[in-house]
Design a protein around this nucleic acid. Structure first.
Lengths: 183, 183, 183, 183
DNA sequence: TTTT
DNA sequence: TTTT
């Protein structure tokens, strides 16, 4: 990173699937656009409301580009760290325009996504598929309430539902029950 | 988030598996420790060297806690956004100590991880499983392969290799071949 | 900045005057400690309350170190941008301790300080001094007064009151009257 | 601050003097534009070079707005912390445009400015004025001078030279002589 | 142009 | 105490 770069971290949802391309030298680049929507408490109605979204185009390079194209998808919530850049160009009509983009240093799917999971090593899961069946799913444990899954998740199957009610009022959350950290 | 919170974004590797606990009210909390290791170019030898690691304990709550415990693992590279906090306590010997911790707002596995992937919706993949062994891993191929592939990815297999040569010299990278973005 | 450094921006008040020292080679370093106190809206009482302070030691180098020692002072609100570092050492009793410190890249007094001002060029002010007492302080006036004024600013007066009730409820604020930006 | 806001810290130089306005309700707002220019080491020539500047418009409110209008000036280096926002509007020709702006939470002059200083209390300084001309400016001296000085600081003089060679190669600096912190 |  |  160059000294004096404007570092930015954005959390938002993909507005479209990432698009993967390759430079002439074979370098992978993925580009996607995310919408970051702040939520604020309306002090009148005591309800959470959405603020205006911030849209930003992000460019990822190399291995992460390929991974992004593979594993990210419209609707998913992601965390992006990068450097804010400005690019100037001329329209066909000869007008100067300037766009802001993020040169990505790190991206990843937010674990606040419905059931975004990454694969762990094979020692993890016995069976096929992904996620593990209910049987060996530690979340299924009776105690501290499973995050809700019926038969679900079992082998051969989808899993991730982009969308869903992720963020929600819990944003910035933490300890809404004034629980003490049990550590 | 409270006004005036000290927001921090950390990228680093899990030093241990996340530990999941529940508060008396049943709230999930996961805690893990990450090591963030800067790399700098040694101008003498013209080599990349590791700087001193920064270690930080992170606390995640709720759904993300459960997801973290499920999908993160020692060695993985993660992106964490949260608020830096200081906690003071007394040792048994009556000495005051203070620790710094991060109250996590967002975490996710970095897509610079070897083959960190999250599940996409079922419309995505035809077949069964997820992950796929190194042998059929399209990312392993040097040639710019298209992200979508036919049979691929099939069943029974681990997938993620924590560790590996992730970060590497490409840190902060981007466009080392002075390629133009192909967009 | 090394790649992978953990960048942090902290806003807080100096807990003590900066201390200036010089390395054997004559390099200036200033060190000071700041307290960053978040404020949150207590939803029960509908009042702003202070959260737990975060204390952090900051090291500034070179010119900025000298400027800091000269112009910063206990109580002042400052903005600090730097890299979070961990330093390990042994106590005299042989115990290992670790401290977190900020290697400062940029510091400056916050313009939310009571009357923190920096000097402008001489075309600005007619007269001698700087600061001006409360009586002739245009900022004290409720009516939107023009920033530049004739005689003003004259001589022999203190000016800055470190501490005081700066931040206040306006934190993160902006547009509390739902005014439209007049631009 | 709303949850989910995209926090940004920018360091750059004012491209123009701040413009101060007031909303109908009398709320002060200052607006200015800054240029943030990264520097990178050209590994071929082993020289520091300027990267492309990032330009961003910033809006400050209230007291800080008035202070900004008073104390900031074209050319000065400032630190800005705020929230990145997007504003959409239509041109007179009916075209939709979108601009990115920063809603400022904190601003201050960088202490890496040539001689940016803020006033300290009168207990500080013996004499009259503030600022001091270049001639008697202790910061101008190359030798590590003690921060406290006798008569010092005397009257009638400009002081701040906006622009100049601020940033310089020392960006991100710290400890270029591998000096140990003398603390 | 748009996500949740 | 420690990750890559």
């Amino acid at each position: 990173m160059a000294a004096g770069d404007t570092v930015i971290t954005i959390v938002g949802n993909l507005v479209e699937d990432p698009e993967l391309r390759f430079t002439p030298t074979g370098q992978a680049v993925a580009r996607f656009r995310i919408a970051s929507t702040p939520r604020f408490m309306d002090r009148q109605t005591n309800e959470w409301k959405d603020g205006e979204s911030l849209f930003l185009t992000c460019n990822v390079w190399r291995q992460a580009a390929e991974n992004a194209a593979e594993s990210l998808q419209r609707g998913m919530r992601v965390i992006v760290q990068g450097r804010l850049k400005q690019r100037s160009y001329e329209t066909k009509e000869g007008e100067k325009r300037t766009v802001y983009e993020v040169e990505v240093d790190e991206v990843g799917p937010s674990l606040r996504n419905a059931t975004a999971k990454v694969n762990r090593t094979s020692r993890q899961g016995g069976g096929g598929g992904f996620g593990g069946g209910p049987a060996d799913d530690p979340w299924a444990s009776a105690t501290p309430a499973p995050p809700a899954q019926g038969g679900g998740f079992g082998g051969g199957g989808g899993g991730f539902q982009g969308g869903g009610q992720q963020g929600g009022a819990q944003q910035g959350g933490g300890n809404d029950f004034s629980d003490e950290p049990p550590f």
